[in-house]
Amino acid sequence: MSDVDSVRDVVAVVLLLAGAFLCLTAGLGLVRFHDVLTRMHAGTKPQVLGILLIMIGGAIRLEGWSATWMLLLVAVFQMLTAPVSAHMISRVAYRRRHVRRDLLLVDELRTGEAADRLYRGDEPADAPPEEPATALEESRRDEGTLPPA
């Protein structure tokens, strides 16, 4: 075995291990983070870089160009699709209000106090109002069984 080969092997092993480690932290993030939105961060950034490193390591270690092209395609589509799926899941999670609001410093997407208390069009029928007592009072005012405030 020549020196060039062993250097190549060392580089490939380092890249594969680093990639595997990053994918492990992505899994850890899914367990340790608090809500869907923060978990999506763990599911996109370390995981995509981990896949990229594993692909580079594999391309160095595997012989023949045909495998390299395939790995390149995997990397490209990973970078194209991971943000889209993270975005779709985050959007659904926000609209279904799976958000730990107590851990948010600011929320500029929220449309106002009153708008969130009662049901709106985007939410599923089984989503509870955020403040049940106020929502009940307000819906009774709308019906006319309680006098307006």
Partner: peptide, 18 residues
């Protein structure tokens, strides 16, 4: 992000901005 998943303190506040 990898460091934030590993460190004992976890993550602090997050934010939603427009």
């Amino acid at each position: 992000v990898a460091w934030q998943t590993l460190r004992p303190g976890g993550i602090g506040n997050s934010a939603i901005i427009q």
